[in-house]
Design a protein around this nucleic acid. Sequence first.
DNA 1: CTGAAAGCGCTTACAG
DNA 2: CTGAAAGCGCTTACAG
Lengths: 336, 336
Amino acid sequence: MKTLRPTSFDVAERAGVSQSTVSRALRGSPGVNAETRARVAAAARELGYVVDRHASSLRLKSSETIALVTICRPGEDRSAINPFYFALLGSIAAATSARGFNLLVSFQESAANFRADFVASGLADAMIVIGTTSNRAAWDYFREAQVSGLDFVCWGSPGAPFHWMRSDNERGGRLAAEHFIAAGRRHLAFVGPQRSPQRQFDERRDGFTAALAAHGIAPVIAEPPAGPDRHAQGVAAARDLLARHPGIDAIFAASDMLALGVLQGLRDMGRRVPDDVALIGFDGIRAGTLADPALTTLEPDIDAAAEALVAMALEDDGHTRSGTRIPVRLAARGTA
Amino acid sequence: MKTLRPTSFDVAERAGVSQSTVSRALRGSPGVNAETRARVAAAARELGYVVDRHASSLRLKSSETIALVTICRPGEDRSAINPFYFALLGSIAAATSARGFNLLVSFQESAANFRADFVASGLADAMIVIGTTSNRAAWDYFREAQVSGLDFVCWGSPGAPFHWMRSDNERGGRLAAEHFIAAGRRHLAFVGPQRSPQRQFDERRDGFTAALAAHGIAPVIAEPPAGPDRHAQGVAAARDLLARHPGIDAIFAASDMLALGVLQGLRDMGRRVPDDVALIGFDGIRAGTLADPALTTLEPDIDAAAEALVAMALEDDGHTRSGTRIPVRLAARGTA
DNA sequence: CTGAAAGCGCTTACAG
DNA sequence: CTGAAAGCGCTTACAG
């Protein structure tokens, strides 16, 4: 099958010029005669010549590639990965493509496939790490890597020694609180993991409680029971919460998957949404729009997040923008 | 920031051997003294040395990388990509990783970013194309590419000149029919695009109608009206269908996104699911399990599909396995 | 504006 | 078992 690929020497011969001229012409270097350039381009086209990226990258010492690592839960089915990360992956792909860069993706879950040497091996110019913070072993591995000099930026929780970026969670929490208050809700609850390595959850809760405090309201804080995934945790959390606090009329869930579970739990308890209980999630995942009623949520600007992550990863300036916050907006739909 | 990366010569010096020995020791070539090998490994570790993949690939003429192209709808938000493709992407990543290969991903939607030269440029050893068949321009581009010698395999519809693989759609349709019949349903309908370039839809319908014919039943075939996405089309299709055929008691939708829309449409029409109308989708996407009631669906073995696609792409045997069918199973959940 | 040549960092056939 | 050397296919400083 594999037919011998033509090299720049073949193109040179066909165009009747030297190999160096072929290289210059094809790269668009200045100072190449227009007529020569055209002849080279024609010869390349005729031969189906494409520059060898390994040879090129080796010389240039740059691969124009970004490596994207997505950390998964061990043993997790790929289709069960939080859709937020798939959406972020898609936006990162768009951002890299807009720069003419390639995207190398790697889903990692256990020591069997932990890898952080994409930049060290020359395969990528920069690396981005996203995914669940529930995988402690993975983050320990990447902490170690960062400390030993394998550089990258990441999305979400991590503090030092990571270079991170995340949503404006505090503001998201405040927006949720104000939305509930404006709708006349007074018996509020926050459902989310407490003291999770996912600092983002705490930030959402803190923004929520701070805004409510200004109205003299203290929400119930409900930690979801352990469960196989966020959705299952949400179902259980709603049941527990309503059993203990039957008067609750509004719930802010720390993530959409959790919120979708809460929605299901509320239905199981015979509560109407939003009539009896209003509900707001966080993330803006597609599945929220498919729920009935559609989930009201705090939606981070995921394209902005992707663009900022790529820029931050590529800027070799010690990641001065570490700590950048991505804006969020309240998407008012059916549940609140 | 960028500190000079050590080369195999640096390792050689530190280990007190020649550079060729370093290369052999690190690659695990036979005939290297165990003690020498250990000394080289230690020196490499101490220096934080990682083999340069461009130099290595250039010599080896192989990159141990698979390129995965996902075709999107023009102008489509990345978070709106059918989750089935994200799940397939995840499984393909797992399959490539299991072979020690890297995965290069590229989302393409318009002439601005059409590219099929990943193998020609040496960036990848093989290429896989998945994604929506609704993007005609994209498939025209890839047809052209295939004809001109840029080889790849794809998922889904395409016939010649493509090397393709898809679900056992015909059998899926039969399973849906039998499931409905066994439950006593007799007024059946199929909702799906007709004569779409997505041949898979026709196959699902044909399996469905063939199995029903054996029971002397002819289902109503409903083509969904045009719409911004499959979900919206499903909502509208359900309304039209029920208005015209109020007695329908079971619907087989050509895909899960369509089915989720149908579910919504049935609710809008005041029909209870599954009591009044039973519903089955196709794809096994996660969002189906979050619906209320959870969507019964035909679930292709996506890990098997991914593994087969990778194997097929990598096998340089003229893709003799073109036309492979991936097994599907009926996942009975709440809607049927 | 163009060519001859060096060199990017590896792998491996060839000698020893 | 190990070393010296050629060569993978480019890019670009150096001459002209």
